[in-house]
Design a protein around this nucleic acid. Sequence first.
DNA 1: ATTTTTTTTAACCACTTAGTTAAACCTTAC
DNA 2: GTAAGGTTTAACTAAGTGGTTAAAAAAAAT
Lengths: 208, 208
Amino acid sequence: MDNPETHPVQDTTEQKIFEAAHEVFTQKGMDGAKMQEIADRAGINKALLHYYYRSKEKLYEMVARAIINKAMPAIRQVIESELPLEEKIRRFIGTYIDIISQNPYIPLFIISEINKHPERFFDAILPATLPRPEVFFRQVEEEIAAGKIRYIKPQHLIVNIVSMCAFPFIGKPMIRILLGMGPGELRIFLEERKYEVTTFILASLRPE
Amino acid sequence: MDNPETHPVQDTTEQKIFEAAHEVFTQKGMDGAKMQEIADRAGINKALLHYYYRSKEKLYEMVARAIINKAMPAIRQVIESELPLEEKIRRFIGTYIDIISQNPYIPLFIISEINKHPERFFDAILPATLPRPEVFFRQVEEEIAAGKIRYIKPQHLIVNIVSMCAFPFIGKPMIRILLGMGPGELRIFLEERKYEVTTFILASLRPE
DNA sequence: ATTTTTTTTAACCACTTAGTTAAACCTTAC
DNA sequence: GTAAGGTTTAACTAAGTGGTTAAAAAAAAT
């Protein structure tokens, strides 16, 4: 049991570099990130970066992949499941806000880097992880046909849901100023949104 | 009348530089933008940049200010007006989506640059232009008290509205992939949202 | 012990960056 | 004309940039 080779966060140099890179890339983006700063934060020499990770590009790509793999699968699982629609919406919002609360940098990182290098993402990083919305669309249509919810185009519904979940994290600093909140109040506000967004959406879907 | 000094888009060097800087800064952000590229796009020598605009920082700041002044005032006017709540919501969504459709880069530019240099924005650029939500909040509370809409915290309502308007522009490339749309389809989709978002919100606010 | 392999380092390279300089080029005024 | 002003340029600088190299230090294998 006291074997030092068990794996609770084995703090190898390679990992320290990766963690430092993760910090710097998420805070400053590909362009703003400097290899020297990553080296400094990892407490090592700059040449070591290139020993473990051939190039900035490669290092960046691994960080990006890790970030996407942290967020996408859980969300994808919910949206592609066969849960009844209302339960699915509840779960989706809860899962999404939980995950992002723990890694608030994720949405802005993904979005701004997609905007600067679309090819890289769609060719290399995202391919299999992107959720398929077909099941969700079919469910919405069925519930409309059954008179359980009012008519709505499922594409707009899903964009509305994702918007309300993701945007507050993306626009955090602006919202803080707009609503005059401190960091603590904002955390509570975002936590509240799990309930508020769910209520808002289900209320909107009530049949006429 | 044939006076060359009338002002329909007088294409002075200074302006050409500013336009080029505008393009480059909005596409690549402060870090990604290079003075050389701005000079090239303006069709002039790099030294001219520093003749007209002292530094990259200064040039950036002017571009940023121009962008904010293009978006904020109209939005602010609507939200601070005394229009009845429902009409205000309709106008807000229409105005927002119209403005952003014509300048789709605005939300992501503002947000990602705020996240990288919060001081700059809140100290120097935004100060007076940020909308005051108090009037809106009071209206929401009044309508709730009068039983015209269901109970909702006005802070969440306003964040919901802004989210649904802004996010689709910010996440455009991801939405395109997610929903399998071409550029044309996406344009139509975003135009549709003026109606769809309005309907969605008013439906949600219907009293029980 | 001594080879061999993996880690780590300091010093360096070629290139790009924002920003400067000093001289030439225009206009326009006198 | 020519003097004065603003405008434009090519050539440069100093400080980064990502990335390499060759050799030392440490660990592992024999």
